[in-house]
Design a protein around this nucleic acid. Structure first.
Lengths: 212, 212
DNA sequence: CAAAAACTTTTAGTCTACTAAAAATTTTGC
DNA sequence: GCAAAATTTTTAGTAGACTAAAAGTTTTTG
């Protein structure tokens, strides 16, 4: 199963061409970004490299942020795969879990995407000019939080987290906490991961010790 | 002491004129916003009402977001005054404190500003094109969090919060938690405060009961 | 009061996202 | 293969943020 493609291959030629153009557009955006950074990504530039017109880019992705979100969504799939390989079943307490989670996300951001893209995407998700956009973005958050919740369930089964807690609520609370520090992390190119991780561990240190 | 004015009155005529223009600009922005919403706020429009040129608006506030941030900063002062009157000394446990805090901020937003302005400002604080901007915004956060921390200290003195916790760390953690729900609140015009408050109380419910 | 300094305004552009409508092209269904 | 449908492209434009530099105005300073 290849990420990035719909489950069943499109029947009609037209559908296939559309998929192809869409893929070329995000590939173009990626290449442009890698070559010269976010400021140099323009709809026009993307269109040229992808071999379509700028109007088509708009038709497909709505806005520039829409294109960037597609980039993020793609890398999100890889991140979830990383989680399966590196996070699931590894941590043996809540603090450890959240810190691993946070670290993986930060590292993934630095290798696969870039702070600047996240800034743009999170920004757009808050400003939310587009209706689709917010929805898509929220789905990504949902998937990440679900991973966390599943791990909390496991810790509960193993007796490392009190039975009494609501895993879903705790999962979202911790996801939000961690996300606030992630936003701190991406907000400036100069903010380093270590610093944010330390802040996160202070957060957890103030909240969690009574739980054990 | 009037909010919105510097402590000492400016000596030179030039300084006074500058203050006056600045004040006219944000007053113009506010009136434009109240009349027709965020989309209708343009630098040009602000300049015209304020009786200055658009270039002057840029010189003073840098960007459109800069103007909006000034609006937020102004209302922030009122919010802190509200805190003194309505929050300080009122809560008798952590959950109650955070929920009051959150509620006051939401209500203040609805009466004094607007979700749309916050969206723009938070967005800009994340995207952070401007260096000054992020700094200013962070100061607002600092002031809000400090209020929270001071209240936590009080609860600790009253023996309602364990001595062992670090008030500063706990304060920031809870501020971040609450802020995540505030961002959820402002992200869409349709999201209602009750819903977000409920989510917040779930967050707290999952994290805090073991502390008491 | 006159020269200098400090600002603001005018002017003139640039840049880029985004949109609407007509024209051209290509696939599809019969 | 041909008409119809779907979709892209071309074309043309708008809007609004932001900038640089010259010109004009007002305050300051001696």
């Amino acid at each position: 199963m290849m990420p990035g493609m719909s489950a069943q291959q499109p029947t009609s030629l037209r559908e296939r061409q559309k998929e192809d153009r869409k893929a070329r557009i995000i590939a173009a955006a990626k290449s442009l970004f890698i070559k010269s950074g976010l400021e140099k990504i323009t709809i026009e530039g993307i269109a040229e490299i992808a071999g379509v017109s700028s109007v088509t880019v708009h038709n497909y992705y709505g806005t520039k942020s829409g294109v960037l979100l597609a980039l993020v969504a793609e890398s999100d799939r890889e991140l979830l795969a990383t989680f399966d390989a590196t996070l699931v079943g590894k941590a043996d307490n809540l603090t450890d879990l959240i810190e691993r989670f946070f670290t993986l996300i930060c590292e993934h951001t630095q290798t696969h995407l870039d702070k600047a893209i996240w800034r743009q995407v999170i920004s757009a998700s808050i400003c939310g000019v587009e209706p689709r956009f917010g929805k898509l973005y929220h789905e990504l958050d949902n998937r990440l939080a679900s991973t966390l919740i599943a791990e909390i369930e496991r810790l509960k089964d193993e007796g490392r987290v009190p039975e009494a807690v609501n895993s879903t609520h705790l999962g979202w609370a911790l996801f939000n906490l961690q996300n606030a520090r992630f936003i701190e992390f991406i907000s400036s190119d100069d903010t380093d991961q270590e610093r944010c991780l330390l802040n996160l561990s202070h957060d957890l240190g103030a909240l969690l010790p009574f739980m054990a």
